Simulated scan of single mutants.
Amino acid sequence: MTFLKLGCTSFGGPAAHLGYFQKVFVEQKRWLKPDEYAQLIAFSQFLPGPSSSQVGFAIGYERAGIGGALAAFFGFTLPSFILLYLLAVIPSDTNPYLQAATLGLKLFAVVIVLDAVISMAKSFCTKQLTAIACLSSATLVLLAPYIYTQLIIIIGAAIVGLIISKKEHSSTIKIKRPKVIPAFIFLLAVLIAIFAQGDIANTFSAFFYAGSLVFGGGHVVLSLLQSMLPNFNQDQFLLGYAAAQSVPGPMFTLATYLGAVAHPANPLLFATIATFAIFLPGFLLLLTFKDSWKALANHSQFSQALALINASVVGFLLAALYQPIFTSSVHQASDLAVVLIGFICLRFLKMKILFLVLAFVTLSVLLH
């Protein structure tokens, strides 16, 4: 139910989702400590797939095992799945009230991410070196917004941290073996995607490959899917992409829309297959290597490396606060005024998120 509520209200893309998770699971429910949450974010940056959904999946797994992980995934993904499926099967005209409400929710996403950046910076950027790592990573991401920029930055931060900590610690780092079952399922799914034939297999193959190869979240998956699904025209892709950004929850549910549109005779089946296939690789890889990452993160020699990685993750969130969240939401002075008022209400007056969501929607409809 917690993730279902988030799936209905988490607008603004992966960075905003991480801000919502920070507020709910670290500050309010205290399911995770700040450093544990930062570890999950850093780990998700190493894996292909939807980073915010992987973090949510991992939070569910930490809370209640594989059942909790699946509950987190279905709860967070279901609202956007339903909305994009309906968009694919039901012709609809543009609704100005809906557009205004969506703008209000995108403005609220600016508030949430700004609050998350400040909270995480207080925890992970307390020293000169970590502050430099944070600002440097934000600068590099803004200047070089390429697919592998974040991964390269994290690897670089880890190397610098290990070089520094090596002077202080000399013990050997022992990494736990990866889990066999999810790794086996991943390899089996790869074989199915390669050799199976038919519409169902081809749909699974295209979206499974996209989920396996995309680093950087939903904004990056569009170009890869365009090359893998040549039968779609540009208008279909752009409509689905715009809708995926406008609805709450993960942007990877773009696969829901594309799967349903590609097979109008049986849209629900193919929407489900496409959605399942695009999320599957990232989740299997997370289950395979999660314990290995945790063992590495808890080692004393890796502490300095982890500190720089965490600071770099804050820098990623800072960069995302500007592009795409701020630039796609704040277009005029009244928008910025609403953001500042909302930030005061959230940060200093401690108002409930649900109340603020309703207030932002109402105010945006009245203004626009």
Rank of each mutant, 00 (worst) to 15 (best):
L4A: 01
F11P: 06
G12I: 01
G12M: 00
P14R: 03
F21E: 02
K23D: 09
L32C: 07
K33R: 12
K33H: 08
D35R: 10
D35W: 02
E36R: 15
Q39R: 15
I41E: 07
I41N: 10
F43S: 01
Q45M: 12
P50I: 08
G56K: 08
F57V: 04
G60F: 05
A64W: 01
F76E: 01
P79W: 06
S80C: 04
I82V: 10
L83S: 07
L83R: 01
A88E: 13
A88Q: 03
V89N: 05
T94F: 13
A101D: 14
A101P: 08
T102D: 10
K106E: 08
K106Y: 05
K106Q: 12
K106G: 09
L107Y: 11
V111Y: 11
V113T: 15
V113S: 14
L114D: 02
I118H: 08
S119M: 00
M120A: 08
S123W: 13
T130F: 04
T130G: 08
T130E: 13
A133N: 09
A133G: 12
S137K: 05
L140Y: 06
A144M: 11
Y146T: 09
T149H: 12
I152D: 09
G156A: 14
S165L: 04
K167G: 11
T172V: 13
I175Y: 09
I175W: 10
P178Y: 10
L187R: 00
L188S: 13
V190I: 14
Q197A: 06
Q197E: 14
D199I: 04
F204K: 01
S205V: 05
A206C: 11
Y209T: 03
V214M: 07
G216T: 09
S223H: 09
L224H: 04
L225S: 09
L225E: 01
N233R: 08
Q234N: 14
D235P: 09
L238H: 15
L238C: 06
G240R: 02
S246E: 06
P248N: 01
P250G: 08
Y257R: 03
L258F: 07
G259M: 04
A260C: 04
A262S: 14
H263S: 00
H263A: 04
P264C: 00
F270V: 01
F270H: 14
I273N: 10
A274E: 04
A274Q: 11
A277V: 06
F279D: 05
P281C: 04
L285K: 07
L287S: 03
K290V: 06
D291C: 00
W293H: 04
W293V: 03
A295W: 02
A295M: 06
A297F: 11
Q301L: 12
Q304P: 00
Q304T: 11
N310D: 00
A311R: 06
V314N: 10
L317I: 15
L317C: 07
T327K: 13
S328T: 15
A333T: 13
L340N: 05
L340W: 08
R347D: 14
K350M: 10
M351E: 12
K352N: 15
I353M: 14
L354R: 13
L354A: 15
F360S: 13
T362S: 14
L366D: 02
L366R: 11
L367A: 12
